[in-house]
Design a protein around this nucleic acid. Structure first.
Lengths: 143, 143
DNA sequence: TTTCATGCAAAGGTTTTGCATACGC
DNA sequence: GCGTATGCAAAACCTTTGCATGAAA
């Protein structure tokens, strides 16, 4: 079950945040490019096409807010800027495959880390809440 | 087999980079704190104590060089700055445990991702060269 | 009407760069 | 002596913030 404009607006409403046109426009642009791991500036550039009045700071603030509400997750793919994706808490974790040649980020939809997590918790005394696994290599097209 | 001042200087020499006093001082400070995942500025502050003449830009340039030579690896622990650790290519990979409360980064010295890597390569067509796995949670002291 | 959100510009923090000087080899 | 490395300061880059204005509820 994925996010929709309506479901996110409902969440904003429940948490007593205002459902402004800017937030809706930004969210819609993000939803329309859900697979692209957009950065703030990329999203700003998309939004600007139809809504040049919206400021970059508003995009940053909206992304911050959605991340705080755990609707989005802030990610780092080592390209010097933060990128975002939907945080589907119910879904299994997925991993990221980062092409070191073209920079494309794709997802791999199996988790398979349970036994490793259990082992680490047992051996290290660390209480694990979350993880993030990135693979670097060459995508189909680049190798 | 880990890195030493001598081995790294030898590599610099072989690759026809100059073995300057600044590079040696910076490298020594890094070696003396090999477990701390120092950032450029932290390293600069250490170095400055005894060598106030060394500039921050030189620290950045030295870290860049050592990363390019694959002596160091640039890491990102989501605290807004790059951190570095030795890249021991021969050694097993290790994973990072990041405490979300105190920020401490510790290492877990088993890899155990071979079968997952094989599976991903098979299913996705991605040629995996490297990976990075971070666990977020609470360390011994913080929970 | 009250409170929160926005837009703009300025400031912040990290990293990079230009350039004259210094120095390893 | 040649060519790279350094130090300094300025610039570049991404992100956050202050503040007056505007709009949601």
């Amino acid at each position: 079950m994925s996010h929709t404009l309506e479901s996110v607006c409902r969440t904003l409403h429940e948490k007593e945040y205002k459902v402004t046109p800017q937030r809706q426009v930004i969210l819609k642009a993000f939803l329309d490019n859900a697979d692209r791991h957009l950065s703030a500036e990329e999203l700003y550039n998309l939004v600007k096409e139809k809504h040049p009045e919206i400021g970059l700071a508003t995009v940053y603030r909206t992304l911050d807010l959605l991340a705080e509400l755990e609707i989005l997750q802030k990610m780092n793919f080592d390209d010097g800027r933060s990128r975002y994706e939907f945080a589907d808490k119910e879904l299994h974790h997925h991993h990221h495959l980062i092409c070191v040649k073209c920079g494309k980020v794709t997802e791999f939809e199996d988790d398979l880390l349970e036994s490793l997590e259990a082992q680490i918790a047992r051996k290290s005394g660390f209480e694990i809440m979350d993880h993030q696994l990135k693979f670097y290599g060459y995508c189909d097209k680049c190798r």
